[in-house]
Design a protein around this nucleic acid. Structure first.
Lengths: 138, 138
DNA sequence: GTAAACTCTATAATTATTATAGGGAATTAG
DNA sequence: CTAATTCCCTATAATAATTATAGAGTTTAC
C-alpha cells in the first residue's frame, strides 16, 4: 500500500495541476482542501521541490507551483520519492536494490523471478502514466 | 514491499513443496534452512494451516505438509493471508476495500482509476502464478 | 521594517511489524 | 500409563516505520 505521504503528494500535485493558471499556491490551501495537516504537507512539498518536481517562491504572494508539465511527471517518480521501492522484494528493485539476507542463490530463486514479472507489470503502468492522466480524469 | 511474514511463508511453502515425498516436515527444519526464528515461523505456519493451505500432525513424527497441490496455491492467496491487500490504495482493494477518508467522489478520482490498472496488472501475475511456478524454477 | 510564506532540522506520538514466551493439547513409543 | 515430542494458542515485549508537531531560520513584497 502507498503511504499517506505518497497519497498526499498525489493530491497536492493534482491540486497544483488543476490550478496552473495561478502563479503560486499556498500549502495552506492544499492542506485545507484535503484535510491534511499543514506541517505534514509542508515536508512533502519540500521533498517534491528538492526532487525538481515543484518550484516555490518565498514571502508574501509566494507558494508552490509545478515546474514541469504534468505529462512529464510519471507516477513512478512520485512513489519512489516518497515511499521508496515499487517492487515487492528488495532483490528485484531497480532503484533500491538490496539482496535478501536469507537467499543463497539469487539467480535460482523461484520467488524472485515471479516478482520480477510483477515489478515489470507495475512499472509498465506507473512509468507510463503521468500526472496528466490523473488530471484528465478529474 | 512484502513483509517478512509473507516472504517467510513463501520460503516455507517452497521447502514443503520440495520435500513432498516426506509425510511431514518439522518447523525446526524450515526455520534452520532459512535462518528464521522458530517461534516466528510457527505463527506463520499456523496461519497457513488455518487458511487451509497446510495440514499438520502433532506428536512424535508430526509436522506440517502441503494439503493442496502447488498448482492450486496462487501467490495472491499467500500475500493476502499474511500481508493483507495487494492493491496500492484501500479504495481499489478487492478483498480489503476501504474508502479514502479525504476522497469526495471516488468514481471521479483520477488517481484511483490508475491504481485500478496497477492492481489488475499485479493480479494478472499473482493470481495466475502459483507455488508450482516457484518450484519449477528452483 | 514587518508580515507573509517557504526552509530546515529535530523530535514526539502513534502504529505496524517482528520477535519472544510459555503453558496447553494431541500423538507416539516404550 | 508415562514421558517425550510436536504442534496450538494467546499474550506481550521489542523494534522499526510512519505520521505528526514544533519552532527557529530565510526570503520577499510592500
Amino acid at each position: 500500500m502507498l503511504s499517506k505521504k505518497t497519497k498526499y503528494a498525489f493530491h497536492a500535485l493534482t491540486y497544483l495541476g488543476k490550478h496552473r493558471d495561478q502563479k503560486t499556491i499556498l500549502i495552506h490551501d492544499i492542506a485545507e482542501e484535503y484535510g491534511i495537516s499543514h506541517k505534514f504537507l509542508e515536508n512533502i512539498l519540500l521533498e517534491l521541490k528538492k526532487a525538481g518536481v515543484l518550484g516555490s517562491k518565498k514571502g508574501k504572494g509566494g507558494g508552490y507551483y509545478l515546474i514541469k508539465e504534468p505529462k512529464d511527471i510519471p507516477l513512478s517518480k512520485v512513489i519512489r520519492l516518497l515511499d521508496g521501492p515499487i517492487a515487492l522484494l528488495p532483490c528485484v528493485s531497480l532503484n533500491y536494490y538490496e539482496p535478501c539476507v536469507e537467499c543463497k542463490n539469487e539467480a535460482a530463486c523461484g520467488l524472485r523471478s515471479v516478482m520480477i514479472q510483477v515489478r515489470d507489470e507495475m512499472l509498465n503502468v506507473l512509468e507510463n502514466k503521468t500526472l496528466a492522466d490523473i488530471l484528465d480524469r478529474e
